[in-house]
Design a protein around this nucleic acid. Structure first.
Lengths: 284, 284
DNA sequence: ATGAACTATCGCCTTGATCGATGGTTATTG
DNA sequence: CAATAACCATCGATCAAGGCGATAGTTCAT
């Protein structure tokens, strides 16, 4: 079986164009490289180098094998990279839960920086809202969450406000009766069905005052609103991104509301280096 | 450095869920697997298995490392696969030159079968016509070619007709004067510019009788025709695929012409197993 | 409690990676 | 044309790592 040492010798010899140069580069003796290449050629039953001239050059078959060998070395270096990160305590998989209220260039930028910094780390993104986010972090299911700011959190959670805000406004379908009105009064609003966010963990918290349909995600609310089933508070970016032209914003006193975003994590299941790094990027 | 044996031991132990089972599967002793996993854990400075219960189970970190290890083993098995093929004389890269006259389900099917049979073999497709195809095969630049059938070939080439034919018809742009005519006479045709195929190797072979623009590929001819620069003989499938609605077929005596396709290869640079296999698929 | 199946560890052997030294080949240079 | 500088192949010796068998300890089900 082709060992790592042999493959490294081969790859270096091929890229350097000289066995001696490869030996110097790898800190081995020249005879080691020579033997390694020879043994590889025997193992594979192939001639990899044309030795007729002074500088050995790859045969056509050698070119192909070089690619395969480099793939192996790349894979092993990925293994070593991951191992070193894991042994330093980096979480094997980072789970981030985010609210649909939050969508920003900052988050995009943080993610692509994260991709640079931890290229091989698996990332899981969950979407949830309000108390569902809190529950995910509390249970340890998610390491970090970005949620619509609340006044207070359970004692085992730590929060820090992100320097950014978005807007939530009221929307209805273009065909909805409310869409025709210029300014909508609270009383008029109450006469139509509300599409409201309901968390999974706490379904009864929001005791309905009127006719209410609820869903645990803004995206579902948006689809309900597009169906004309009622009016809904929705993040403006979400409407612009997924329902341009289908919804009409309502002009109601007190709306749109600015929304601030908190980063959350747990004292009991604190995020590892990768999670902390991502938090740092988001809060800087 | 993590050796292949150690990685195999780890992967098998992880997938089998037992060191002993892995040992049986790999034909090694149980102590070997145990030692291998232990040494890997030391090398990587990680605990890969949770040994608290009877059957060892992967730690979270172990799960991640298993993925990385499997990537390495997959890469080495690819290396061994290609080595074995190359040592059996399979060409390091297969170069096929095809004419634009030829486009068929059979060729598509042969290519996808080829992808199954030789998944790691590099494939190069060249496009050329007539004498250019002959030259590519003669020089060894291409192993196999599929060309518009000719009456005779140089003595060092072997040909075999593919059981299939396509059609070449005359086309002009919809705005071209000829497009208005129902039936076009040869004399009338001569009064307009011809867009003709000219090979690269033999530019002077086709001494122009009238005003002629020429190009070495049907695709260029098609673009010229779309520009309204003249009339051109073009493979019908090419027009339907790349210029639907822009060109008008001409009704001229003797057109459209059926075209037969020959497979070509060289006696001096005979195709290796992969090329022969592809030929077999195409000619069966 | 007992047996079956599993893992860890120890001593010993074999294989293969490595080194240094030596000798042969190829291109450059004066 | 000879001298020189690089380069590669080969040989014998050394050492680490992979492998085996035996043995002892643990876990789970009966």
């Amino acid at each position: 079986m082709a060992s790592q040492e042999v493959l490294q010798a081969f790859v270096q010899a091929a890229t350097q164009g000289s066995f001696s140069a490869a030996a110097r580069k790898l800190g081995r003796s020249q005879s080691t490289i020579s033997a390694a290449v020879a043994s590889l050629e025997i193992d594979l039953n192939l001639v990899l180098f044309d030795r007729s001239s002074r500088k050995p050059s790859l045969t056509p078959a050698g070119h192909v094998m070089l690619q395969r060998a480099e793939e192996i070395l790349a894979a092993t270096s990925r293994l070593e990279m991951t191992a070193s990160q894991l042994s330093q305590g980096v979480e094997p998989k980072l789970t981030v839960a985010i609210s649909d209220t939050y969508q920003s260039d900052r988050f995009e930028a943080a993610l692509s920086a994260f991709d640079q910094r931890y290229p091989d780390l698996e990332l899981e993104c969950l979407i949830a809202e309000c108390d569902d986010l809190v529950a995910l972090v509390q249970s340890g299911r998610a390491h970090v969450a970005f949620a619509e700011k609340q006044d207070s959190y359970p004692p085992d959670l730590v929060s820090s406000t992100v320097e950014e805000r978005t807007e939530i406004a009221l929307f209805v379908a273009r065909e909805h009766p409310l869409a025709a009105l210029d300014l909508v009064d609270q009383d008029v609003l109450q006469q139509h069905r509300e599409l409201r966010l309901a968390t999974i963990v706490n379904p009864y918290e929001s005791r309905a005052k009127g006719r209410v349909w609820s869903a645990p995600s803004y995206l579902m609310l948006l689809e309900m609103a597009q169906g004309g089933f009622g009016w809904a508070p929705l993040p403006r970016w979400l409407v612009e991104r997924f329902g341009p032209g289908t919804l009409q914003e309502l002009d109601v006193r007190g709306w749109p509301k600015p929304v601030f975003v908190d980063a959350l994590w747990s004292r009991l299941h604190p995020p590892g280096p990768a999670g902390s790094w991502l938090l740092g990027k988001m809060l800087e």
